[in-house]
Design a protein around this nucleic acid. Structure first.
Length: 130
RNA sequence: CCAGGCGGGAUAGGCGGUCGCGGUUCCGCGGAAACGCGGGACUGAGGAAAGUCCGGGCUCCAUUGGGCAAGCCGCUGGCUAACGGCCAGGGGGAGCAAUCCCGGGAAAGUGCCACAGAAAAUAAACCGCCCUGAGUCUCGCUGAAUAAGCGGGAUUGAAGGGUAAGGGUGAAACGGUGGGGUAAGAGCCCACCAGUGAUGGAAGCAAUUCCGUCAGCUAGGCAAACCCCGGCAGGAGCAAGGCCAAAUAGGGAGACGCUUGAGGCUGGCCCGGCCGAUAUGUCUCCGGGUAGGCCGCUUGAGGGUUAUGGCAACAUAACUCCCAGAGAAAUGACCGCUGUUCCCGCUCAAACAGGAAACAGAACCCGGCUUAUUUCCCGCCUGGCGCU
RNA sequence: CGGGGCAUAGCGCAGAUUGGUAGCGCACUGGCAUGGGGUGUCAGAGGCCGCGGGUUCAAGUCCCGCUGCCCCGA
């Protein structure tokens, strides 16, 4: 059950971390999201959320972040599994930044889950091939 | 019953379950501590939290004055910490009415008023009207005469003068109606009415209202144009500001005295004022500061109830309550049952099935304004129709 | 969260000082010149000035409220 929690230590909170992941991490897109990720030294998996300021008004931006966090909380062990398999290395960490763009505020939780699941699984598969 | 006006209030669907999040605090374990892990209790968005349009608190900066410029407000009185807000009163406008909207000064000065129109603001005089009337034509008389003179008439008549009644314009035309008067006219004079100024009295704290007297006889609009009058205000904002303080770079920093005076500051500008590179002497000290962390950070012009004063806004007193404090930023996801309203389908109707239910997220804190918005409820008032 | 700016023809800009029938360049349409095109030349069309109120006789311009876009401050 501890897998389904989401504490402060599971979040990316420093602006230099965001800058580092954006600079040296890898990225890919789905229909409504841009995902940056990078292998990290720790053994955990961390999440940062960013919503475009073109998503208006403020309460819709907040809702986007909540849904992304909720998705991450429910599926973190799966995501970790995919990337550990891709890198062929158990116990490595992952920093993940999800950027939401306009249009994302209209998604339901089910639609969001489907889109992010598909995107992440596909990306992990491509990493493994290389 | 229908239509309308004003004011106030409720709600932001509810209950349960599973998995989670922020804050405070307690217990257990680990640890030198910071803290970490596990568990419990309490608690966790709004009426607009919004726009950032005003006003304050709070914080730092500036503060030795003087002058200038710029800004905002504007009927009167009150309330308030303050306001561009609120309450009461007064005036003007809209409406049958309830009610709503607006507000210093145009007689201190400057400026503007396109087009049209004679003229757009100390009135002027284009047409017109009226008077005088050179000249021209004509008639009569004197005369020999068609010369000259005298007199009369006509004129679509040079020129001079009077006048502002009328002139179709314009958003707006320099009092209105009637009478007298005159060559024609005119507040030129008179009566009534409207308006202005001065002044006397009455009511009111005042804005203002009412009743008189006198005067000149009349004064266009725009200050959300400059401006005048009265009032307000130093500047910036919690990313304010304070404390701790890695890595890296660097060897300085501060105080005082004396001389030189490049340059800089004085937060709109000027006068004025102040600091001061460099060189030199003495003394003291390890500091400044980025990442990051901590504080500021929620007990406050606070909420509720009652009483008293006041038409009211509001004030005072007593009792009582503690009600988010994050920092890449907490309230969410899924499931079950269910309330209200609306839509669609079937139906005489109902039941039933399905769908929908707003605007929107605290970021230092308050008082307002403005804007967005769901479903209703209550009270008072106005007009109309019907019945008694 | 706080502070500030902009919006006018399809595009880029004037006009806002001092309110009075809104213009310039490119692009567009048509005529002429050429065998045809480019180019040149002549003519024309295209705007309720971001939206809604107010002041005024009259608003792109002055005042108030919204909407959208952009910039600055750790």
């Amino acid at each position: 059950m501890a897998e389904a929690r989401f504490r402060k230590s599971d979040r990316i909170r420093l602006s230099r971390d965001y800058a580092r992941i954006k600079e040296s991490g890898k990225r890919f897109r789905t229909r409504h999201f841009l995902l940056n990720y990078q292998r990290s030294d720790g053994d955990g998996i961390r999440l940062g959320t960013v919503v475009s300021s073109r998503v208006r008004p403020a309460h819709k931006r907040n809702r986007c972040k909540r849904l992304i966090r909720e998705y991450f909380r429910m599926n973190r062990s799966e995501i970790k599994g995919w990337f550990e398999f891709a890198w062929n290395h158990n116990g490595s960490g992952l920093d993940l930044v999800v950027v939401a763009y306009p249009g994302a505020e209209g998604l339901s939780f089910g639609e969001l889950k489907q889109e992010l699941n598909a995107g992440l699984e596909q990306e992990a598969g491509q990493v493994r091939k290389r």
